[in-house]
């Protein structure tokens, strides 16, 4: 029984991280129709900020990572995506792929190809024993952090005036503009939120690994993007659940696959993704209204 609970807790914390990544991607997609591949480089940028600034002072590092993430997110839009608003979602995806590759090489040029190591929040790497369960502090912190952020995002979107405007813009951008919602502000707010979420992902991942390299954020973004798609890109909640499911499945496979098949855990997740898309081509939670995006 104990190993089962143990693995479920681990899986929940992995799922929480990917859920955050997927939520950031889903939010931006809702408003801009941009499935942002370059979200990974926002995470990487925040991770570099955390690792490099942490030795100086930890509050400063946290602040720096959030600022870097938001700035990168806004800059990308200003430099590239802003000029492509009238283009198809596929073109935007390709462009963000380009931005992602470009930033990866830029990080390589600035920080070098090799990993930069540094202890971020070393206090969290310990684990505690609760009735035979070995709980890593980080897993708990990841779950709490994700829960807090998700609740915050939820309240922001449903209770605040600005959040409702973001939702309106996500539902129908054109109509929202006609009704007097300022699109530029909505886009900036959404990008800012995705930046904060990316910084949170970076915090958990850097604490876990204590190292960062130029392709640091790619994995989380891939799974986040895939999770968002299988959940249903045009439903924010769908993206969230999809991301969680991907992380959860990956972690369970890691724990429970027999040793000979352990190498194929990632392959299995991708296989599962294809199967899910076959059953629900628009994503699990897309509903019936989503047929238009060809």
């Amino acid at each position: 029984m104990i190993p089962v609970i143990q693995s479920l807790i681990d899986a929940t914390s992995a799922g929480a991280v990917y859920a955050l990544a997927a939520l950031g991607i889903g939010l931006v997609f809702g408003v801009l129709r941009l499935a942002n591949f370059a979200n990974g480089e926002i995470i990487t940028g925040a991770a570099y900020a955390l690792i490099l600034v942490w030795p100086l002072s930890w509050p400063l590092a946290l602040a720096a990572s959030v600022v870097v993430a938001i700035a990168l997110s806004l800059l990308m839009d200003l430099a590239v995506f802003r000029w492509m608003r009238s283009q198809s979602a596929a073109s935007l995806l390709i462009a963000s792929f380009g931005v992602s590759i470009l930033l990866q090489r830029a990080y390589e040029g600035i920080f070098g190809v090799n990993v930069r190591t540094g202890a971020v929040a070393p206090a969290l790497t310990r684990s505690v024993n609760v009735g035979g369960l070995r709980l890593s502090m980080l897993a708990i912190v990841a779950i709490i952090l994700a829960a807090v952020l998700l609740i915050a995002v939820h309240f922001f979107l449903t209770k605040s005036r600005m959040g409702l405007q973001v939702q309106a813009a996500a539902a129908n951008f054109r109509e929202a503009r006609i009704l007097g919602i300022r699109s530029g502000v909505m886009i900036a707010v959404t990008l800012g939120m995705s930046g904060i979420l990316a910084a949170a992902v970076a915090f958990v991942l850097t604490t876990q690994s204590g190292a960062v390299n130029p392709t640091f954020g790619v994995q989380a973004t891939l799974f986040g993007l895939i999770g968002a798609v299988i959940g249903g890109l045009n439903r924010i909640g769908g993206a969230l659940v999809g991301g969680f499911a991907v992380g959860f499945a990956l972690s369970l496979f890691t724990t429970w696959l027999p040793s000979g098949f352990g190498d194929f855990r990632v392959a299995l997740v991708y296989l599962l993704v294809i199967v899910v898309l076959l059953i629900a081509p628009n994503g699990i939670f897309a509903g019936r209204t989503a047929k238009e995006r060809t």
């Binding site: 979602a89 895939i226 990632v266 392959a267 991708y270 993704v273 994503g283 060809t294």
Partner: peptide
């Protein structure tokens, strides 16, 4: 059977599957 972005992501999943 998939369209648009979903097709793009699913083909991507195929690539990763084959590479793994």
């Amino acid at each position: 059977r998939l369209h648009g972005l979903e097709a793009g992501i699913a083909t991507f999943a195929l690539l990763m599957l084959v590479l793994q």
